[in-house]
Simulated assay, not measured.
Amino acid sequence: MTVIKDASSESWHLGDMTLAHGSTLVIALGGNALLNAGEPATGTSQRANIAKVAAIIAPLLSRYRIVITHGNGPQVGLLAAQTADADWPLDVLGAESEGMIGYVIEQELANRAPTQIFATLLSQVIVDPKDPAFQHPTKPIGLIHQDRSRLTSLGWDAVEVASGGWRRVVASPPPLKIVGLETIRVLLAAKVTVICLGGGGIPVSLDGDGRLAGVEAVIDKDLASSLLARALDADALIMLTNVVGIMEHFGTPKASLIRRTTPELLSEQSFQAGTMAPKVAAAVAMAGKGKLAMIGGLGDLQALLDGTKGTWVLPDGSPL
């Protein structure tokens, strides 16, 4: 697909779409954005990673209206292990990690873009407490343990990971609705950079009387970010992770980067559950609304926007 920059308007023409100045972008941070594999889960290492993220995103803040979401898998799992005897539920720990990580992201961005205005929100996301996901927990959280007995002694489900060791798994039902969406709309209209939906948001259920209650689960950050982007009618969903994009024949000698694709083309392939599959599903849902989704490496953000790196998922029928 040909990408053309219009010097007069500084817009990027994507077929019949444009990503112009003032466009709304939802940027979902994952992978090496917060904690690299093998790194100690210390505040120092995580702040250093977030500082790198802030340096990459800060130059975009004057050009676009931006909402930043982020993962929390290692952090919420570590908090759960640290507070196991206190019996804090996952929704509360999710809120704690969302505030903790959001605070550091906001501070690092503000130090690099002092004229911008920021708001970090605790985001509740409604799920169905009767969803089958609760019977088959699959979402890994927390650090890798060499001894499974530590996890099972706490009554937690565990799965063996490919690199060796064990990791806790919890239910990950699909997000249905974001609570407080209108607040985000108001902030964006006021040109506030919003940080929200940490860890996919705080999982809650809604009873027949309209009362909210926490749910013992975590929500996939990319699926929740796609739901948010579509609800906001954002121009693009950008998922930044520790891979260069969507790979065809991943894990084989024939592996190759998919540069441009559509939901129809992606439906012909399968992707690894828990890693690329949710990102593909999030991108497909965004493209299904006639908008653009991008997947790529954190350090490639500007090149991803330029169309020179990563994967773009475009609406069906787009020229590739």
Rank of each mutant, 00 (worst) to 15 (best):
G30R: 09
D209N: 14
G251R: 11
L197D: 01
F118P: 05
G77W: 00
A133W: 02
A255K: 08
K177H: 14
N242R: 11
A7N: 15
A273E: 14
V76N: 04
L14Q: 09
L19F: 07
E268W: 04
L78W: 03
E182V: 13
L154G: 01
P59H: 13
I50N: 05
I57S: 02
M286I: 14
G299V: 10
D147M: 01
L240G: 09
V3T: 14
F134M: 00
D128V: 02
L197Q: 10
L265S: 11
G15R: 02
V169C: 04
N49S: 11
A189S: 15
N111G: 11
L227T: 01
S9R: 10
M17E: 07
P315D: 04
P89D: 12
I50L: 15
G77R: 00
K291F: 05
S149P: 00
V244H: 12
L90D: 02
K221V: 01
A51N: 06
P175E: 07
G290C: 04
S97A: 15
E98H: 07
G245C: 08
S149C: 09
I4K: 14
Q269G: 05
P319K: 13
P74F: 13
A33Y: 01
I101D: 00
L188A: 11
T183H: 13
G288R: 12
A217R: 02
S9W: 05
Q272S: 13
I258S: 08
A231E: 13
D128R: 04
Q116L: 06
L188V: 05
A282H: 12
L301M: 10
K177T: 07
L265A: 13
E10N: 15
T241R: 10
V53R: 06
R259K: 14
A51K: 10
L298P: 02
W12H: 08
S123A: 08
R185W: 07
P89M: 11
